[in-house]
């Protein structure tokens, strides 16, 4: 016992120099595309935050003739949509709801996915069977169709859209969590924790979950991108929240005029593309950073 106590300070000293988090961060910074993604993402977030809190324009205001091309009129830098509303204002104001849907849907996905995956992986047996059948049930439903049904049923709002995307996207996270739990619960330190009488809750929360977290963080990051695309897809099909301007809604409302004017669809489309691209690069960077074994590749 005493030996262990004396060993501890030395054991914590060395990790301070090369702590896992610090090591991962260093690894991340060495990954050029990931850094580029992070910078891009920061720029987008700054743009969106400025639109949310700093910029006073009204995205619904008709400023000039409908479908004015970008640059044709001074002050209407990105052109206007089918009603003559300024696209730049729409882009600024529509960013926050777009990102909010992405993040909250990803959060919901992770919460459900981890809960289901952790219980199934940790307890096994009938609980595993039951939860995995449930997961498979959700997994075989076509995600977009299922989300459309949910949104239509509860009438489209940012909340219901986030909810619907979360409900249809959690199965992969659940399976990933379960796999991690199945692997980790057999490791020595879990057995050790169990042998000193730790409760199941403590083992799940304090012992297994922190160790299973890195792949889940990567998965959650990528889910943000998927959720943003999902929102755009729903809006494109006319199922967006009609009372909140978002990039997807801008595309959906203007798609009928695509043959006459490409910019009202292309400009928010590019914004979505850049965001999802940045999020994916960051996600990939995190993945590499958390998986030392893949580093050399």
């Amino acid at each position: 016992m005493a030996r262990i106590h004396t060993a501890k300070p030395t054991a914590t000293k060395t990790p301070e120099a090369i702590s896992p988090m610090g090591e991962a961060w260093g690894q991340f910074l060495r990954n050029r595309p990931a850094v580029f993604g992070l910078v891009l993402l920061a720029a987008i977030v700054a743009f969106v935050l400025y639109g949310r809190y700093g910029f006073a324009g009204d995205p619904y205001r008709i400023v000039w003739g409908p479908l004015t091309a970008p640059g044709v009129r001074e002050g209407v830098y990105l052109g206007t949509d089918f009603l003559g509303r300024d696209l730049l204002t729409g882009l600024l104001k529509g960013g926050a709801p777009t990102l909010a849907v992405g993040i909250s849907a990803a959060f919901l996905t992770v919460v459900i996915g981890i809960a289901v995956g952790a219980l199934a992986g940790f307890f096994g047996g009938w609980m595993d069977d039951l939860l995995m059948r449930l997961t498979e049930f959700f997994q075989v439903l076509p995600a977009l169709l299922f989300a459309m049904v949910l949104v239509t049923l509860f009438s489209p709002s940012l909340f219901t859209i986030s909810f619907a995307i979360g409900i249809v996207s959690w199965p992969p996270t659940a399976r990933l969590t379960r796999a991690e739990f199945l692997r980790i619960r057999e490791l020595e330190y879990v057995t050790a924790a169990r042998s000193i009488g730790a409760s199941n809750r403590r083992i799940i929360w304090r012992v297994i979950l922190p160790n299973a977290l890195p792949p889940l963080i990567v998965s959650a990051t990528l889910t943000v991108g998927v959720a943003i695309l999902f929102e755009a897809g729903l809006s494109f099909l006319g199922l967006g929240d009609p009372n909140t301007i978002s990039w997807g809604l801008m595309i959906g409302q203007n798609r009928g005029y695509l043959l006459e004017a490409w910019w009202p669809v292309a400009i928010p489309g590019i914004a979505i593309f850049l965001t999802v691209f940045a999020v994916s690069l960051v996600g990939d960077g995190l993945n590499d950073a958390f998986n030392p074994k893949l580093r050399s590749r």
């Binding site: 009204d58 619904y60 205001r61 008709i62 009603l83 509303r85 009609p242 409302q253």
Partner: peptide, 10 residues
Amino acid sequence: PEYLRSQLRE
């Protein structure tokens, strides 16, 4: 409806 929303804000 979209048009009306913009106009009625005015």
